[in-house]
Simulated scan of single mutants.
Amino acid sequence: MYPSPESKTAPPGTRYKVLVVDDEPTLRLGFSYALSDHDTDTAANGSEALAKLDESTYDIMILDLRMPDIDGLRVIESLRRHGNLMPVVLCSAAITPSAALRAITGQVVDFLLKPVQPAELRGVVSHVLAPGNDPFAVAMALARAGRHEEAIIRLQEIDGAHPQTKAWLGILRAIRGGGLEGEAAAFGKLERDGLSALAYKAG
């Protein structure tokens, strides 16, 4: 159901099933409007999101980090624990280094920083679900699948002028080290560089 890292560009007009999870009603409405070219469902909190995921399948989830009952990280951990590898875009105004690292180790490598522009929402869906032949998108699809070594090789082949390449190379190389040492190195890079270098940016 989910795209492989080798997926080609989807035909124009492809509609995806998107689950938007955020405790702010105006954001849910705005995100749904921005994604009106797709079949969008919403959930107001983590518990509602998990209930919907038990009842139906989605191509991608746009997930708020901070919610009053079950936060975004616990939603991700629940999904992965049950073998659900659906792509997740973690969306927040302030994602800490520790939260980002937990997400990345849960095979979430796609981040949006609030406030989010409509073009970023539409763009991240295509970036994740229809990477086509874009070298960076293909590298991130490999990282999303847990194939870090292959992702590193692809990123090394990209022109160093790409704004996110260096940041992601550093993180994936650190994680590749494995164990607590690798996690500590990745945490240190996230703490020094911040998440803005890793977050998706339209255009």
Rank of each mutant, 00 (worst) to 15 (best):
V108Y: 02
M140V: 02
S32F: 05
G83M: 10
K8I: 15
G106W: 04
M61R: 02
P87S: 11
L113E: 03
D22N: 08
E120F: 11
S92Q: 10
E149T: 11
T14A: 11
A145V: 02
L27Y: 11
G194N: 09
L50E: 09
P5T: 09
N84F: 02
L65I: 08
L169Q: 03
P12Q: 11
Y2T: 07
P163M: 12
I60N: 03
G106P: 01
L73R: 13
A197K: 05
T26K: 13
G72H: 15
Y200C: 11
S98Q: 12
Y200E: 05
H38E: 02
A51V: 05
Y2V: 08
G194H: 07
R80M: 14
Q156I: 01
A119C: 05
V125T: 06
E24P: 07
A161P: 04
N133M: 06
L142K: 11
D41T: 15
Y2A: 08
V108E: 07
D59L: 14
V128C: 04
E48G: 00
R154S: 04
V75R: 09
I76N: 02
G177C: 01
P118N: 10
A34W: 06
K201T: 14
L155S: 00
A130Q: 08
L29Y: 14
L112V: 03
A137W: 07
D39L: 15
D23R: 07
L73Q: 13
R122V: 09
L50P: 01
I175Y: 01
G72L: 15
S47Y: 06
I171F: 05
E157G: 12
V75K: 09
S56Y: 08
M1G: 10
V108A: 08
V89H: 06
R81Q: 15
M67V: 10
L90A: 09
H38Y: 05
R122D: 00
Y58V: 12
L63K: 11
A119Q: 10
G13D: 13
F31G: 04
H127S: 09
V138L: 00
